[in-house]
Design a protein around this nucleic acid. Sequence first.
DNA 1: ATCAGTACTCGACAATGCAGAGTACTGGCT
DNA 2: AGCCAGTACTCTGCATTGTCGAGTACTGAT
Lengths: 116, 116
Amino acid sequence: MSHAWTSQMRKGVVELCVLTLLDETEHYGYQIVQRLQAIGPLALSESTVYPVLARLAGDGAIAVRVEPSPSGPPRRWYRLTAEGREQLRLMTNDWHELARGVTDLIKQTRTARRTP
Amino acid sequence: MSHAWTSQMRKGVVELCVLTLLDETEHYGYQIVQRLQAIGPLALSESTVYPVLARLAGDGAIAVRVEPSPSGPPRRWYRLTAEGREQLRLMTNDWHELARGVTDLIKQTRTARRTP
DNA sequence: ATCAGTACTCGACAATGCAGAGTACTGGCT
DNA sequence: AGCCAGTACTCTGCATTGTCGAGTACTGAT
């Protein structure tokens, strides 16, 4: 298993990743799970992704279109709405700020420790 | 206010930041709050930081030392234990992996969208 | 008939950040 | 003395969210 804290670090980030993938092109849920699992540190299961999709759809950030699948139950294709695209923009900004804040803090304290 | 998702993005990261600061040098709780509030995207309140310190101390990642304050109630100075230093190392690794994973994903989808 | 792969659903749980209120100590202002 | 701001920490309760585990349904291969 991963460490216990990795699942906490993912919080909030999952939503960002889903929106990001949908910004690229239309996706269905299972496909999103596959793509995120291909990224090691973002490997997450269906029970994580599907609720996110449901909530984003409820919020109007993404829209659904059902299409029969060649192998299995019908697929639910999701795409970004204008609202969702705007949310993605804001979230991406926040993500970059946060990531930079944390990474900088780590760097700063490292150099601070090296020169006491 | 910040957006609703920023507080979710912080999950797990707060613990990392606290450990990082303590890796630099000994700190007391209020001081940690002040320093993190100075970093815009990491601005968080006492009710966030103190529970984290309590839990880390309970886990043995940090050790406490009480000292009277020149202005106010006694300060609780925290410092990293060997255990805590190891945890910090692992968390930092995980953080960098996650951050790189997300940032790369954003970049990839951007270029993918540019060349359809 | 059985099994693997696909695609989605659901209930219950645990961790964590956060708002809000409260306590206690010091020192400055009136 | 009385009051307020700043310091330093505590506590209750809440909402959000990722995750485990199990379940359903459809297709095609063995």
